[in-house]
Amino acid sequence: MLLKNFKDNVIETKNLDFKTIIQDVSFEIRRGDYAAIIGPNGGGKSTLVKLILGLIPHDNGVIKLFGQAPSLGSLKKIGYVSQGIAKLDENFPISVHEVIKLGLIANKSLFSRITKNDLARIDHVLTKMNIQDLKDAKISELSGGQRQRVMIAKALVNQPQILILDEPNTGVDKQSQINFYALLKDLNHNENITILFITHDLGVIVDDINKVLCINQTLLACHDPRQIYHSEQLNQLYGVDAHMVCHHH
């Protein structure tokens, strides 16, 4: 039986190396964590996520997903929103509904088609992300914030246990960001989805998250978020006398 306080590691790396970009990175993400990855541009945040997802092969070290070596099965339990999805091909003729449907293919065998249950799931995430009215719209006609919600919907439709988001809110207005953070918090609290969130902006979510990974080539610190706020390590991380990126209201 699962004890209430027992939390298994869903992502675990040990002494992970990739070229000179990622060096000796070890950390653990537990089930139910809401973790932020911060670090300067070019610090290797996206690379780290790609290593975890097996998009690029690592040189040394160990990656474990759900306590085991990464496999197709474990990838299917992860929803991923990559960086720069906002700069989509403007001419790509694909509707919101079609994009979200793509999130379901991973679990489909070669000859199985979309079922009623699948369509119900798509409707569910459309409602959850509040984009029902946009379902037939062409993706390139949407605003940045709307696109972001579509990409999250695509990641959620497969009912993942982990959600990995690589700076999904670049170019999104304040109000949409606040709604977005409320949604992430809800997913984390109420649906127990583990979240790994790359961001340059800890300000608003610092009270929601329970772990911060500071990455600049190597893992500089793995913190409780409230400690890092005034930490010396932040200076080391950004190389300059950085102060925490905060919201300017």
Binding site: L53, Y80, F92, L102
Partner: peptide, 18 residues
């Protein structure tokens, strides 16, 4: 669907195990 996913977003397609 798989061809469409790859054309639309090759990286995400790969990340989902395709």
């Amino acid at each position: 669907q798989r061809f469409l996913y790859i054309a639309f977003d090759e990286e995400s397609a790969k990340a989902s195990g395709i």
